[in-house]
Design a protein around this nucleic acid. Structure first.
Lengths: 221, 221
DNA sequence: CATAGAAATATTGGATCCAATATACAATCT
DNA sequence: AGATTGTATATTGGATCCAATATTTCTATG
């Protein structure tokens, strides 16, 4: 197990810190699917007791990132291919709508920010960073929709499959395609063409989903 | 020797029980918006310690049903009219899609079940029960979409506004309209017309949202 | 009498201890 | 040897205690 052990005596509650650290470790794939999460082990790493750890684990379970069983403990949740497909389909629906709602509100500063993320995603060679930049690019546009509830759901659903998405980018040479698609989405946004941006976002997500599930089907046999 | 094999599956944990009870109380409006939730008090009510109560509260906070502040405690979360509007808009998007996906899978038994819920909703005079039956009607159809992730999100978003929706049904005479709309949706489903069922569901939710926000704007001034 | 400051109370977050039980492994029996 | 039973260990869920801080009440003073 590998995660950034933080000293707990800081602003937020210990439970919040543990929750955030575990969440990050899971969605970035540092904690492998199926890996055991022992309460006292984690507690020791964060220099705290098991109480806040349990609270953090309970929250992670609510979000579907782990599963727990009494007397047995928690393991990082794995998703079946069907579940992954469902989440991609869902994301396509929501995020397409979010971008449609965002386009009319895009101002120059937001577009400039998105352009920078887009360029960074194009230039970056370190595969480790693609996931992060990809998120930044999309979210910078999504923010303009001014729909906090939608974004909360988008975030939660992306969390569930982010680790697979990162694999898709690196292992299936999905980056090249993602780069082209990002540029196309950005173009549509700059042209204030909400319908085009919507359709492109939808396809972008469905493409990634298809590419990923093909890869996983091979890998898992 | 011959014994009946009993399901010895353990009772849920105390935290689960507290969570479910509080969730139910909040979404049904038994706990009013802004009401204080004291850990001690709840613990005594459930004859347990504060530990499982805290875990339950932490989960409720994740779902947005309460807000907590250190040294101050938890209060039942209230929603602004804008937040309520957003959630209705969101539900319209998701649930319309879910019903579209469900229609091709509807079998005779499911339709019969939905028809029974629809009739029950029509006959029932006790306003207290409308919320429950309304949920049952919609979910009985949604299940056929075979999209567990979508349904989880639908459930969570309905939880957030259920208490207001119940008020809308009773206080604005929304039932009459809801009854008509339910029948229309059921008809479309029986006719296997996915697009019509989708559009009707969308309008059904948006109608309720509009009616509710008009009512709330008057009420809140 | 009104008000500022101090003490008492309420309330949360976390630490430590205890009870329940699943799992692994040794001991026993056929 | 293989199956079965008993025991030690690991691990979780919950109870109780403690520390920190917000809120309220009380007192003394102008």
């Amino acid at each position: 197990m590998k995660l950034d052990a933080v000293d707990v005596r800081q602003a937020a509650s210990a439970a919040d810190i543990v929750y955030e650290a575990l969440r990050k470790a899971i969605i970035e794939g540092d904690l492998a699917e199926g890996e055991n999460l022992r309460q006292d082990h984690i507690a020791q790493m964060f220099n705290t007791s098991r109480i806040p750890v349990r609270e953090a684990l309970s929250r992670l379970e609510q979000h579907g990132l782990i599963t727990t069983e009494r007397y047995k403990g928690a393991v990082v949740a794995g998703l079946s291919i069907e579940e992954i497909e469902e989440i991609f389909e869902f994301r396509a629906l929501i995020e397409a709508e979010v971008i449609r709602l965002a386009v009319p509100n895009l101002d120059r500063r937001t577009l400039e920010l998105a352009r920078q993320h887009c360029e960074e995603f194009e230039r970056e060679e370190n595969a480790e960073r693609w996931g992060e930049i990809n998120r930044n690019f999309h979210y910078s546009l999504y923010e303009a929709a001014r729909r906090p509830y939608y974004l909360q759901i988008v975030r939660a659903s992306l969390d569930r499959i982010d680790r697979y998405l990162r694999a898709q980018l690196t292992l299936t040479s999905g980056v090249a395609r993602a780069r082209r698609e990002h540029k196309a989405i950005l173009d549509a946004c700059m042209a204030r063409d909400a319908e085009r941006a919507c359709a492109l976002t939808r396809d972008h997500i469905l493409d990634a989903g298809r590419s990923l599930t093909i890869f996983l089907r091979e890998q898992r046999g």
